[in-house]
Simulated assay, not measured.
Amino acid sequence: MQAVMFHAYGPPEVLVQAELPVPVPRRDQVLVRVHATTVTSAECGMRRGEPRWGRLILGPRRPRKGVRVLGLEFAGEVAALRDLLAGQRLRVVIDRTYPLSEIVEAHRYVDSGHKVGNVVITVPGD
């Protein structure tokens, strides 16, 4: 999988694009195939090591291995649910489906308090 990482605190030039192995979800975890991500001010602060007290969590001199991959916000599709599906402990309840063009009506329906499951908005093809 493609990832953007930083191995040291500093300016944007510390960022590197890397190819990492696809993670295997552990028990009760999901694997998401990411289609898009954002650049957040929080991640820019992490990259700079700011605020300084944040280094207590991120690592005092350089980022710890678990926090070196950026992409706090993302959109994608669930690729694996592993144990949840295998153990039949996952039940998806879809109440209604609306096209994106009817987003106002979907919000009205949810506001009505009659929703008993997820309300899905379909988006036209890529």
Rank of each mutant, 00 (worst) to 15 (best):
H114G: 10
G49C: 05
I103E: 14
Q17L: 10
K65G: 07
T37N: 04
V22C: 07
V120F: 06
P51M: 06
S112T: 09
D83H: 13
M5H: 08
G87A: 08
M1N: 11
A8H: 13
M1I: 10
V93G: 03
G113E: 00
C44V: 13
S101I: 09
R64G: 08
S41H: 13
V110K: 01
V119L: 05
V123S: 06
V92L: 15
S41R: 15
R64D: 06
R26I: 08
A18M: 12
V16M: 10
V123H: 02
V123R: 00
M1D: 12
A80C: 11
P60V: 11
V78N: 04
G87P: 03
V32F: 04
G10A: 05
E73Q: 14
V78W: 00
E13D: 15
L90V: 05
T97L: 09
G71L: 07
G76T: 04
V120H: 04
S112N: 08
G71D: 00
G76S: 07
A106N: 08
V39N: 04
V22I: 15
V14G: 01
V69R: 01
L31S: 01
S41E: 10
D95Q: 05
P12R: 12
L90P: 01
A86V: 12
H107S: 12
V104G: 07
V69N: 06
R26H: 10
L56Q: 14
T38A: 15
P25Q: 02
G71Y: 00
A8S: 14
T97M: 11
L70V: 00
V69D: 02
R89L: 13
L72C: 09
R62W: 09
P11Q: 10
F6Y: 01
V39R: 08
V34I: 11
A42I: 14
M1V: 07
A36P: 03
R62V: 08
V32G: 03
V16I: 12
T37Y: 04
L56W: 11
P51Y: 02
E77K: 09
S41M: 11
V78Q: 03
R26P: 06
R47A: 00
G76F: 05
G66N: 13
S112E: 07
H114N: 12
M5W: 06
R89Y: 08
L90R: 07
C44Q: 13
Q88W: 07
R82E: 14
A80Y: 02
G10K: 04
R33N: 13
E102C: 08
V4Q: 01
V39P: 00
A18T: 04
M46D: 01
V119I: 05
F6R: 00
D95F: 01
Y109A: 03
K115V: 15
V93T: 11
R82C: 10
H7Y: 15
R82V: 11
K65P: 11
